[in-house]
């Protein structure tokens, strides 16, 4: 479904479904905004529908404490803008195109993601 959604956006509109870029493009306001807002509105409506029907898919059980989520969010926001992509843009879209930049980005963020999650586990045990 994620692949189909990205394919729909690509084939109809010619754009890549990179979530951090879509949000970042709205925040900077110097790029085409309308299609980005429409896509994020779709995410919102999809999110609301799922929350109403299958709330278990959004379970926060076992999630990190709030201060950690705060730090994590800042790193994710800054890092995805600096590196020009996240799991969707580099991961799904970029690897589908066999983009060298995306391959380097995915290998890097997978490695540091595994490293930080595992390190946190070791430290807090």
């Amino acid at each position: 479904m994620i692949g189909l959604a990205a394919s729909l956006l690509l084939l109809a509109h010619g754009r890549v479904a990179g979530i951090s870029g879509i949000l970042g493009g709205i925040l900077t306001r110097n790029e085409a905004v309308a299609w980005r807002v429409a896509f994020l509105a779709g995410l919102a409506v999809g999110g609301l529908a799922i929350a109403a029907t299958f709330p278990a898919t959004m379970s926060m059980a076992g999630s990190r404490p709030l201060p950690l989520l705060l730090v994590s969010g800042v790193l994710v926001g800054f890092g995805t803008r600096l590196g020009a992509g996240c799991t969707s843009g580099h991961g799904v879209c970029g690897l589908s195109r066999r983009s060298p930049r995306s391959l380097v980005a995915v290998v890097t963020f997978m490695a540091t993601g595994f490293a930080s999650a595992t390190a946190l586990h070791v430290v807090t045990r």
């Binding site: 990190r64 950690l68 989520l69 730090v71 994590s72 969010g73 800042v74 790193l75 994710v76 800054f78 890092g79 995805t80 600096l82 590196g83 996240c86 799991t87 890097t108 963020f109 997978m110 490695a111 540091t112 993601g113 595994f114 490293a115 930080s116 999650a117 595992t118 390190a119 946190l120």
Partner: peptide
């Protein structure tokens, strides 16, 4: 940076 944040959160 993104990877570290992803792993933490």
């Amino acid at each position: 940076l993104f990877g570290v944040g992803w792993g933490l959160g």
